[in-house]
Simulated scan of single mutants.
Amino acid sequence: MATTVSRRRRRLDPRFFVGIVLVLGSVAGVWAIVDGARNTEPVLVAREALVPGQAVTAGDVEAVDVQLAASQEAYLTPDDLADGVVAVRTIAPGELVPAAAVGAAASAGTTTVVVRSALEAPAGVVPGTPVELWAAPLVAPGSYGEPVVVVERAVVAAVLEDDGVVADPGSRLELVIDRDEVADVLGHTAGGSALSAVPTSGGAG
């Protein structure tokens, strides 16, 4: 009798055990996926475009729960938002705010200037739009020289409306530029140059 039982045990197909292992592994994998989907963390997303040098406040962002796993540290969380934090590159509306896209205000190398562009701003020019700033120097009353690029990578901070009853031609734009470019821009403005902000296809980050 013992010999018969022993033979039956030896006849068990090893594939039976392999099948059990595969089923258990599949179930464990499904549970891991479901459990991971439930584990979300709050990160910040931009409500509107944030431009370089702009202070990032609680009103500019909102917290959303997302599943980021190990990459969570690459994005700003509600606990990371503190006074004096500014954007160091353009952050698009609806974009998760990368931790590397913000920094201390003291380290910002940009500032804003208001210029009047001789060209009307196209409808697509909104805060965050990258532009080149061109200047045609005034050489005589009503006569201008060859246009030159004054700022290669500016970012529109705001499209401003004229305060007067009669609007001057062109558009008033608040631009974000590097601090070392301010003198050139102000020099052209004071000298009566015709300035033109031309949208570019590249990003402003």
Rank of each mutant, 00 (worst) to 15 (best):
M1E: 01
M1R: 02
S6P: 00
S6Y: 00
R11W: 08
L12V: 15
L12Q: 05
P14Q: 02
P14I: 02
F16E: 02
V18M: 04
I20M: 09
I20E: 05
V21G: 05
L22Q: 09
V23R: 04
L24M: 08
L24I: 11
G25C: 04
A28M: 12
A28V: 06
V30P: 00
I33C: 00
V34N: 02
D35N: 08
G36M: 10
A37R: 09
E41F: 01
V43Q: 04
L44T: 02
L44Y: 01
R47T: 09
E48Q: 12
A49W: 04
L50Y: 07
L50T: 05
P52V: 13
V56N: 06
G59D: 13
D60G: 10
D60M: 07
E62I: 07
Q67D: 10
A69N: 10
A70L: 03
S71Y: 00
Q72K: 11
Q72W: 02
Q72R: 13
A74C: 00
Y75D: 02
Y75M: 03
L76T: 01
A82R: 14
A82F: 04
D83E: 15
G84T: 10
V85K: 10
V85E: 10
V85T: 14
V88M: 12
R89I: 09
T90H: 08
A92H: 04
G94A: 11
E95K: 08
E95M: 11
E95I: 09
E95C: 06
L96S: 03
L96M: 11
P98I: 03
V102K: 00
G103P: 01
A105R: 02
A106W: 00
S107D: 13
S107A: 06
A108L: 01
G109P: 01
G109V: 06
V113P: 00
V114E: 05
V114K: 00
V115Q: 03
S117I: 08
A118V: 12
A123T: 14
V125R: 03
V131Y: 09
L133K: 08
P137I: 12
V139F: 05
V139R: 03
P141K: 13
P141L: 14
G142D: 06
S143P: 01
Y144H: 12
V149T: 14
V150A: 14
E152I: 11
E152F: 10
R153N: 13
A158N: 11
V159W: 04
L160H: 04
E161K: 02
D163L: 12
G164S: 15
G164T: 15
V166M: 10
V166R: 08
V166A: 13
A167D: 15
A167Q: 15
G170M: 12
G170F: 12
R172D: 07
L173R: 05
L175Y: 04
V176I: 06
I177S: 03
D178L: 07
R179F: 05
D180Y: 03
E181G: 01
E181D: 15
E181T: 11
A183V: 13
L186E: 13
T189R: 07
A190N: 05
G191S: 11
A194I: 15
S196F: 07
T200D: 13
T200V: 15
T200R: 15
T200M: 15
T200P: 06
T200K: 11
T200G: 15
S201W: 15
G203F: 08
A204G: 15
